[in-house]
Amino acid sequence: MREKLTSAGSAALHDYELLELYLFRSIPRRDVKPIAKALIAKFGDLGGVTTAPLEQLTQMKGISEKTAAELKLIQALSERLAREQVIGKPVISSWSALVGYCRTALQYERTEQFRVLFLDRKNRLIADEVLGRGTIDHAPVYPREVVKRALAHEASALILVHNHPSGDATPSQTDIDMTRTLAEVCQPFDIVLHDHLVIARENTASFKTLGLI
C-alpha cells in the first residue's frame, strides 16, 4: 500500500486503506485492517473517524487512548492547514478556501457551534472565534457580544458561520431573524456583515447567495 500511495497517490487507496497505513504506525505488530474497516463502518468515513469524540474512539476494539489521541491529531492538522490557506488573505479572492476551512472545522460537529470571522478593511481574515456552543439544533448568539468582539479586533466586516448537525443546511427562520438583527446592530459601528454560512455534513448554504442578506 505504501508503494501504491507513493506511485499512484492517495486517490488509488480506499479510505480504510489510508487509515490502515496510519494505524500501522500506532499499533505495530498487529493486523490493523479489521480495525480500520470497523472504524469506517462505525463513523462513516475518514472525517467521521478523526472527529469522533475520544470516548467513542476508545470504545472501539483495538483503539487505546494513545491511538485515539493520534487520530485526533489528524483533525487538528487538517484544521490548521485549512486555516493557513485563508488567514491574512482577502476572503473574496480566496472564497473557496474560506468555505473549505469552515467545512473542515464544522461539518462533522455533533452540536451547533456559532463562529464569527473578523475581517479588516481589506477583507483579510484577522480572527476566527467561537461565540456560541449549544445543542443538536441550537447555539445561543448574542449580537452585542459579536459587536463587542468586532470592536476589540478593530474589524470592519464579519462573516457568520454556524453548523446544522441535522444535515440540512437550509437556514431556519430563527437563523434569518438573528442575522438581520445582528446586521442592524452592526450598522451604527460601520461594520459590514458580508455573509452567513450554514455548514451541514454534505453541503453549505450562503445567506448572500440565497438573497437573505
Rank of each mutant, 00 (worst) to 15 (best):
V146P: 00
F43T: 03
I199T: 01
S78E: 08
A69L: 13
L197V: 00
I199W: 00
V86L: 04
K4I: 08
E202Y: 06
Y142K: 12
V86I: 15
F114E: 09
V185D: 03
L182G: 02
A11N: 12
Q56Y: 15
L5Q: 01
P34M: 04
L54A: 13
T104M: 07
S166F: 05
T204D: 00
L98F: 13
A41W: 08
G48W: 01
P140D: 13
T111C: 11
T51P: 10
Y22R: 09
T170Q: 08
L18V: 13
D128E: 12
S26C: 15
G44F: 04
L57A: 04
Y142N: 12
L19K: 12
P171N: 03
L131H: 03
D15T: 12
L71E: 06
R121F: 08
D190P: 04
L119N: 03
A205K: 08
L19H: 08
H138F: 15
H138V: 09
P143K: 06
R29V: 09
H196T: 08
L5T: 04
A157S: 11
Y16V: 14
K37E: 15
T179N: 13
K122V: 07
L125N: 05
V161M: 02
F189D: 03
R30E: 15
L131P: 02
F118L: 05
T170E: 10
V185A: 03
R124T: 05
E3Y: 10
L158D: 00
I213K: 12
E79D: 09
I213E: 06
E184Q: 15
R30Q: 15
A139H: 03
C186F: 00
I176P: 05
Q187N: 06
T6H: 05
K4Y: 04
A52Q: 02
I136N: 09
D175T: 06
V116W: 00
A68W: 01
P165E: 01
L210W: 01
I176Y: 07
F24S: 14
I40Y: 05
I40N: 04
E17Y: 06
R133M: 09
T6K: 03
G48H: 05
A69C: 07
D175I: 01
A69Y: 12
Q107D: 11
S166H: 12
M1D: 07
P188D: 02
K122L: 11
T67E: 13
I126G: 07
E84G: 14
L119S: 04
H164V: 00
D15K: 14
M178K: 10
I27P: 11
V147H: 01
E79I: 15
G88I: 04
A69P: 05
L182N: 01
D15Q: 15
R80D: 13
R110G: 08
I87Q: 11
H138D: 05
I40M: 06
P34Y: 03
L106H: 02
H194E: 14
Q187T: 14
D195F: 00
D177C: 07
I176D: 10
G9W: 00
R25K: 14
I213M: 10
R149S: 14
A41N: 14
V185T: 06
T181N: 15
V185M: 02
G62Y: 07
R83D: 09
T174Y: 15
R124W: 02
D31Y: 08
P34I: 02
V185E: 04
I35H: 13
G88H: 04
D15Y: 10
A12M: 00
D175E: 01
S96T: 14
E65M: 13
E154I: 14
H153L: 10
W95K: 11
H14T: 15
E202Q: 08
I74S: 12
